[in-house]
């Protein structure tokens, strides 16, 4: 299975810009399926970005984050070739992790 995480991270020497897109239903628990059954809430609660042993960005999410969530931020202190580790955990105990090289 391919990773649920897509990430683009590019450094301009000083600042690294990061964009991530994650495949996740982000079900609110408010929607019914075609049989009228409520689809239970299923959403990412925490998404973390680490670089050189340090958290550079931590997202805490509720159900109002869109399906297949997207986030963009920038940080300093990394250079091209450094590893950026991305990991998420959801409310049902699901998780995924990937590592991207900063370009």
């Amino acid at each position: 299975m391919a990773s649920s995480i897509r990430v683009r991270s590019t450094s301009n020497g000083d600042i690294t810009e990061v964009q991530a897109l994650i495949q996740h239903p982000m079900d609110t628990g408010l929607v019914k399926d075609s049989k009228g059954e409520v689809i239970p809430a299923h959403f990412i609660q925490q998404l973390k970005f680490e670089c050189n042993g340090k958290d550079v960005f931590v997202a805490d999410w509720g159900t109002a984050v869109s399906k297949d969530p997207y986030v963009k931020f920038s940080f300093k202190g990394a250079k091209k070739g450094d590893d950026l580790k991305i990991s998420w955990t959801d409310n049902k105990g699901g998780s995924d992790t990937t590592t991207a090289k900063i370009a």
């Binding site: 964009q19 897109l21 297949d68 963009k72």
Partner: peptide, 10 residues
């Protein structure tokens, strides 16, 4: 910027 069809494309 990070299109929602990315996963389908891959």
């Amino acid at each position: 910027e990070f299109p929602p069809y990315e996963f389908a494309l891959d």
